[in-house]
Write a protein that binds this DNA or RNA. Structure first.
Lengths: 202, 202
DNA sequence: AATATGATTGACCGATACGGTCAGGAAAGG
DNA sequence: CCTTTCCTGACCGTATCGGTCAATCATATT
């Protein structure tokens, strides 16, 4: 990892990073050619190897960087100071949208990284972005104030529903290749408000 | 397409078909090697080329076959004689589950085919399994009896929610590589019953 | 102007993967 | 036996890709 990479003008550095997110989020690790990343960044393949000594280093740098960026944005937005469940969801959404404006393919990159199966990478990815625990366990751990939600509502199922629908939305956009932060904010906000209305105690 | 393929003992023919579904559902068309399909089917690559004159022919056969199978199962289950919306959803689920028991990767194969981007294939896929119209339009076309659902419920959003969550579930299982029809039936039935409870008029 | 230093490239290499072919060996049937 | 069908391993040409390298370009220094 050549230090000069960090001395690059922001524009060029971002171009390389985004090119990496882009290509890796659309194919598996193995099927993401360095040449394509270089082309997407507007530089030569050789120069890419000048900054990163090999493909693995680039990939792992992007893993690390993506979590740093996410963490940064989360604290910047003060996500977890909220107490209303749907507000938390919405602020989480805000984070993704803000991030997506600067790094259109970041969340898709992370999504793919969670599921990357390459033997040589799997272990290191876990260290960098954390193992994905599955929505079932997340739903288990949820501690919510029952009195704020509709009577008799199964909160675990509610969470499952919300999680799966958001995930389904993301996958759909990923496959379609259409990434539009504003559209995404609009769609998912509408969903969240729908849920708030349906699930809240009257 | 060698006619002798259809004279094969069912077991062997199914092995080949399922191998095709399996491999094509896990990679893109381009990245699905014929050798891997052959290996998964327990035959030699040469024999696979004996039955199908090239990769494209095999792929398109699988497209055709998967829709035929689905269509068959749908009429067999008499899906659309039901009138209750959630019953329709559940019978659709039954179709998928039944099919999945014989062809574990069929629905994943179709899901991938909808999004396959290969220039040479795109047109023919549409002809065989139909173009995917997007859930938004599906939600538009929905004609439901408002009086059966909770008062003031946004039916379009309800459908969007249900569609995205089911889709999210499928993607999640696809990526995790864990395909278990019974598990799927259990999970999605639970979701459907949850929705029925929340969305129905009290 | 000469030189040194780092940035950047195109051409190239070795390895590998893959679609497809082919000559010929088993099997099955007569 | 012989013929036809089934089936395989070895092989080929091509394309791709990670990575290298010598050469060039830009810039700053002497």
């Amino acid at each position: 990892m050549n230090e000069s990479f960090f001395q690059l003008p922001q524009e060029k550095r971002m171009a390389i990073i985004n090119a990496g997110f882009r290509v890796f989020s659309r194919h598996s690790y193995k099927n993401s050619p360095m040449s394509e990343i270089a082309a997407a960044a507007g530089i030569s393949k050789s120069l890419l190897f000048y900054y990163f000594k090999n493909k693995k280093e680039l990939y792992l740098f992007l893993c690390r960087h993506s979590t740093e960026l996410t963490q940064q944005e989360i604290t910047r937005q003060g996500c977890y100071d909220r107490e209303d469940f749907f507000d938390i969801f919405l602020s989480g959404l805000k984070v993704k949208v803000q991030l997506m404006k600067r790094y259109p393919d970041l969340s898709l990159f992370q999504l793919k990284a969670y599921y990357e199966k390459d033997k040589e990478l799997r272990g290191e990815i876990n260290k960098l972005i954390g193992e994905y625990s599955g929505y079932e366990t997340q739903a288990q751990m949820l501690k919510l104030d029952k009195s704020r939600f509709a009577e008799g509502l199964d909160l675990k199922m509610m969470y499952t529903d919300m999680y799966l629908a958001s995930q389904g939305y993301l996958w759909e956009k990923l496959q379609g290749g259409k990434i539009d932060p504003d559209r995404m904010e609009k769609d998912l906000t509408a969903l969240a408000e729908f849920w708030r209305k349906v699930y809240s105690r009257k």
